[in-house]
Every structure is written in structure tokens, then in C-alpha cells.
Amino acid sequence: MTTIESAPLVPSFDAEETDRKLAIICSKGNLDMAYPGLILANAALGEGVETHLFFTFWGFDMINKKTMGDLKFTMLGNTATHMPQGLGGLPGMTSMATRQMKKAIADLDVPEVPEFLQQIADSGGHLWACRMSADMQHLEKEDLYDEVEDIISASDFIEKTEGAQMLFI
């Protein structure tokens, strides 16, 4: 059916101008658990939402220069692979599973973790490191990815993200 509109039909990109804010706490260092936060942060930024990521505990592996390019995926303890659990414990299985997952991600043209963080920073996203995790792992700011703005306490993060929608991953 064809209808003729009198006023031009234009997407309302700025109609719903809000001060929407999103805060994502990344607490895991497995390859498969790194991506949900990154993908959601990237999507939120593309929608004009102010986005903050807070890396804590194992999530520090995502911003630690030594580990960020080398996150792993393991079948162990993950029943969603629908493989016998004993298989996951065999030598070499974690690196094989990691390789396969990395390939599947790359096939979708989704970047690896360091490049993804760069894309998020370029899109205006804010990256914060957790003070307690830094102290526990004896890491300083120079050990962390360059786009990490600062190492801050949990309370500073809560303060910075006042009014934000919060995701814990």
C-alpha cells in the first residue's frame, strides 16, 4: 500500500535527546566473557549514549598489556559447549577452543580485544581500571592499555556514573 506523507518522513535521530548513561563493569578475563561488555559498549556509543567501562578483578586481563591480546576460552566448566566435560581437561584443548573462538569472531569482522578497546575509546568511551585490582596485582598505570584514563576506586566509579544504567559482566 502506498501512502503520500504531507510532512517529509525523516528518522528522529535527535528527537529523543537524553542524558542516558551506561556503566559496564567487566569482571571476567575469559575471551568469551570479554566480548559482551565490549559489544554493548560499542553499540551504546554508536547510539550516542555516554559509556563507561570499569575493569575489575579478572577483568583486568582485558586491559593489562601483558594479557589483553591473549585471553583464552575454555570448555572446562562450561556446559554450553555440549561436549563431555572430561574432554576440556585434555592437554591442548583450551588453546584449540581459543583458536576456534577467535576465528569465529574474526570471521564476523569483530576485532580482537586491544583493537576493540581502541575503537571504543575512539568512539568516546571511557575506560577505568579498578584501584584494588591494580594493588592486588601490583600493576601501575603504565602496565595498562594506553587508553585507560585512570586507576580509580570503586567509590570514584560510582560517583562518575551517577544516574547511569549499570551492567555487571
Partner: peptide
Amino acid sequence: PKKPAKKMAYVAGLPKPRGCV
């Protein structure tokens, strides 16, 4: 500004991108 992917697609006369990243 704000929603680059959708705005670019709109100006270029194309559908919104369907990919997540």
C-alpha cells in the same frame, strides 16, 4: 554526531546497518 552509523546510512540513502559491530 551521536549516531554516526545510522546518520551516515540515512544520508547515503541506504538501510540501517544490521551488524552489531
